[in-house]
Computed example of a mutant assay.
Amino acid sequence: MLEKSLLRYVGVALLGTSLLGSCTTTKKYNDLLAQKVNLEREKAECEATLAQTTLERSDLSKQVADLSEVRQRLAADTAQLGSAYRKTQSLYGELSNTYDKLIKNHDKLLANSALETSKLSKDLARREDEMKKLNETLTKNRSQLDQLSSDLQAREQRLNELERILAEKDKAVDALRNKVSNALLGFNSKDLSVDVRNGKVYVSLSEQLLFKSGSTKVDAKGQDALRKLASALKDQEDVNVLVEGHTDDVPISRGTQGMQDNWDLSVLRATEITRILANAGLPGTKITPSGRADNVPLDPAKTAEARQKNRRTEIILTPKLDELFKILEAN
């Protein structure tokens, strides 16, 4: 467009020059030449500008093409982004719903948790109270257990002491039985026996050895046996002597001097034996006479043999158990 304007301008100038050729002055001619030169220069500048513009236009066309390609890629990317955006919006909606549900569940859980916490706190307080009571009971039981343990130890000590004393007593009883048996070895076993019953030494003397029928006087052979027994017991300071007179169930004869029944007979015989033992040197403070009449028979039968067994005197030797009684009283 610029080139056409220049050509038109030049044509107009040339036409004016030809029309005025003859009548133009040199000055005008020079002005026109100057204008021509200027026009040619301007033309050259316009052509350079046109070339530059053409080059720039080419560059701009290339940039437009590049921009169009970029635009197409952006459009494609925009379509993908739109699809992704829509998917994201959908996911966002789902997430929002899920979040709302979670919030509601969380609030519900918080409410339930508060209720449960309150319940657990009450249970904990109750259990702590129970634990406190249990600890108090345990402390009390432990104190009782310690006391019981202490009492048990004391009882075990007393029991050991009792066992020791009983063992010593049994040993002493056996030694006493052996000593009495040795002292009375020369007598018939049917008339005299020595045995141990209930921790005591029983010296059983038959009526035949000691008395005539119905009499309270001891025969010489019986007196000999009693003196030997007294001699064996003189050094037994811790032994008590009980003399028991026994009769059979046959009533005494009427008119027997100084006696009304078997009670009198049993007591008088026991008293007589006690007197002989005391005269033989056994301290009277250690001897106790007693009569049992026919109340403790060896054989309850009504035969002559049974009645003969029942007519007897039993001298019961009992070791003193002062130590044992002291321990028992301490319990």
Rank of each mutant, 00 (worst) to 15 (best):
F211I: 04
S18G: 05
L268F: 14
A301W: 12
T49A: 05
Y202H: 13
R71G: 10
S58L: 02
N262R: 00
E305P: 08
I316F: 04
K234T: 07
P289H: 07
N97K: 03
A293F: 04
Q223M: 03
K171M: 12
Y99N: 15
L226I: 10
P297D: 05
K4R: 03
C46K: 04
N160C: 07
I273W: 05
N240P: 05
L268H: 13
S193V: 15
N198F: 00
D174W: 02
D146N: 02
V203P: 09
K217T: 04
I316C: 10
L19T: 07
N240H: 06
R126Q: 06
R158Q: 07
L109H: 03
L81S: 07
T78K: 06
A278L: 03
G222A: 01
K140V: 08
V203T: 13
L109C: 13
S143W: 02
V243S: 00
L185H: 14
V203Y: 08
V243D: 04
N182K: 11
I287P: 03
P283L: 05
S121Y: 05
V243G: 03
G16S: 02
D174N: 14
R312P: 11
K108D: 03
A48G: 12
V203N: 08
T216E: 03
Q147R: 06
V70S: 03
V239D: 03
D219H: 15
K217A: 08
I103T: 09
D123R: 14
K62N: 03
A65E: 04
N198D: 14
D219I: 14
N182R: 08
A278N: 12
D170K: 12
L81A: 11
E314G: 06
L268A: 14
K101Q: 09
L229G: 14
G214C: 11
N295T: 15
V194C: 11
T288S: 11
A183Q: 12
E161R: 09
D31P: 00
S118M: 10
R269K: 13
N262G: 11
S150G: 08
K119I: 07
S18D: 06
S266Q: 06
R155N: 06
E3Q: 00
L185E: 15
R57H: 01
S18T: 09
D238I: 04
Q72C: 08
E3H: 06
L134F: 12
Y202F: 13
V180M: 12
R164N: 14
R275G: 15
A13M: 00
G21I: 05
S215R: 11
A125Y: 09
D248L: 01
V173S: 08
L109V: 09
P297T: 07
K36P: 07
A304F: 02
E47L: 10
Q236C: 14
P289I: 01
N188A: 15
A154P: 02
T216C: 10
V243F: 11
A13G: 01
K190H: 14
S58A: 08
V267L: 14
N135I: 06
D31Y: 07
L185R: 11
V196Q: 09
D107A: 09
A76M: 01
D107Y: 06
S113Q: 05
A65M: 06
A44T: 07
L102Q: 08
D224I: 04
